[in-house]
Nucleic acid binder design. Sequence first.
DNA 1: TGTAATCCCTACTAAACTGATAGGATTAAT
DNA 2: ATTAATCCTATCAGTTTAGTAGGGATTACA
Lengths: 138, 138
Amino acid sequence: MLSKKTKYGLKALTFIARSEDDMPVQVGKIAKSEQIPQKFLEGILLTLRKSGILGSKKGKHGGYYLRHEPSEIKMTDVMRVLEGPIAMVPCVSLNYYEKCDDCPDETLCSVHRLMIEVRDSTLNVFRNTTLADLSSVD
Amino acid sequence: MLSKKTKYGLKALTFIARSEDDMPVQVGKIAKSEQIPQKFLEGILLTLRKSGILGSKKGKHGGYYLRHEPSEIKMTDVMRVLEGPIAMVPCVSLNYYEKCDDCPDETLCSVHRLMIEVRDSTLNVFRNTTLADLSSVD
DNA sequence: TGTAATCCCTACTAAACTGATAGGATTAAT
DNA sequence: ATTAATCCTATCAGTTTAGTAGGGATTACA
């Protein structure tokens, strides 16, 4: 299941991308427009900022803005920040690899082989989708 | 993340498929060979039986067996039984569709569109993979 | 007919995770 | 100063996960 955190995060990013006139967007505005609990959203945008996807400006008239063009922001990066590893098992994760306790030989493990295929096909989607695709209104 | 339940279930199915000489396979044998807590595995095999993927024979010399040829057992079915819906959000689920509370218009929702693509690519893997693929030793 | 092996079923539990709330500290514009 | 924003930490109720416990029901076979 996609966590609410990720869902909210994606919606917020889309919102910011759509309202780009180089003015920072306030959490409150996003929360209201997208029906997201504001305090919850605060934390989400914070992690997006810490990861380098968003920038922020503090104080009055502050808010969040994209650090790069929407077309440069790949879903692989966004999803990893919000949802964690893309692979469904650590033993097929590119960025968070971990060996299974059981499983003496990965190449013989049926789960391993299946999950590599799932990872690759999901990765293929995320690599070929940017925030620009999400926020286009076609 | 893939649940242990699913992981264990897939390993067990693979084990049964590999040791097919038409004799039912005992939970204890699978548990020992695959390093799975036996009581936990019991429950998993039970749900696989109730779903029609496995059959069982009670009493001495009893055990579990496949109800169909491995090449007929598609991962779509197995995954839905073990892991639940394949879609990451209910609003793009084929078998368990549910509208989002928020989201007045799905066709305009960025998350919706992205998740449809993920669903389709994952589905494509599961539809083209059978237990025979998992249990082959190439 | 008794006994051992096996599936079957229900209930319980500890730990982790999720989604959210609370309360305030810090910063900046006016 | 006041106000409006981000930032940070802690807390919490509910759910899920992974597993354990204990036994009931069924069958093979001596």
